[in-house]
Design a protein around this nucleic acid. Sequence first.
DNA 1: CTTGACTCTGCCGTCGGCGTGAAGCTCTAG
DNA 2: CTAGAGCTTCACGCCGACGGCAGAGTCAAG
Lengths: 141, 141
Amino acid sequence: MRIGELARRTGATPRALRYYEEQGLLTPERRPSGYREYGERDVDTVHGIRTLLAAGLNSAAVAGILPGLPRPGRRRPGPTCPELLAGLGRERERITRQMNELAAARALLDDIMGAAAPSEVIRAPRPESVGRRSVGGPSVR
Amino acid sequence: MRIGELARRTGATPRALRYYEEQGLLTPERRPSGYREYGERDVDTVHGIRTLLAAGLNSAAVAGILPGLPRPGRRRPGPTCPELLAGLGRERERITRQMNELAAARALLDDIMGAAAPSEVIRAPRPESVGRRSVGGPSVR
DNA sequence: CTTGACTCTGCCGTCGGCGTGAAGCTCTAG
DNA sequence: CTAGAGCTTCACGCCGACGGCAGAGTCAAG
């Protein structure tokens, strides 16, 4: 398929798709005319890219990770193991920290909202965990 | 206290503290010499600011929210209610979405790691939730 | 008085993931 | 054949939370 279709099917803009290619995240074929030609698998790849970018990874990190997902068709012996795995772990750690920060911020907002609107329509605040005061919520790992 | 001490006690740099002031998030007194003089309460305020900024809120949003937290000393009748509360809800929603995105990304990483390192030292992946395949984890609200 | 640590006000630099034209070639339906 | 949608490669713009530096004033100790 061409870039427009891939864009529609992934939610990314053509510009973004070209940018991903520039960063080495995507390597479409080329028609004689110069038009990019993408395969079906690229749909999943782009979804993966967007998921990771949305989580705050930069394109370099994604470039280092992505090679491991074109269908996790069992086994992935050599190329995935060396320090790539370490990077994976670090990114995972970053994400976990970020989740905790978000949880803290949300708890702070809940605290403020709770103080300002005692009997207000709260956004599905998990009926129990509206715990009064003290924002230090549980921190998972 | 002066800016250096506040910086040390909050983890923010002096530059950041001046920036917060520039954005209207902080309004320290001034000594005759021009030096900024902060109060004890500013320590908490800065922590709140950093928590919210770390969650992806911009300084304008923080500025609209912060007035509600200098000690939630019960009641907060007028000034906190109008559309400020709506903004609070929107930010809360944003944070929740972001948490879900992070969870998705982490699940993706786990998937890749799981495929690459079958019996590897996994980062405390919550013994049960290592569910094989299919990244579509639970999405809370 | 001197020194060294601290603070002040500008003001430019940064970084990353694109947005947004500009100028020109390609493809396809009618 | 022709129009119009779609594609190509540059290349500058943006935004936001600071970092960093310059040049100058302030403060407490010795």
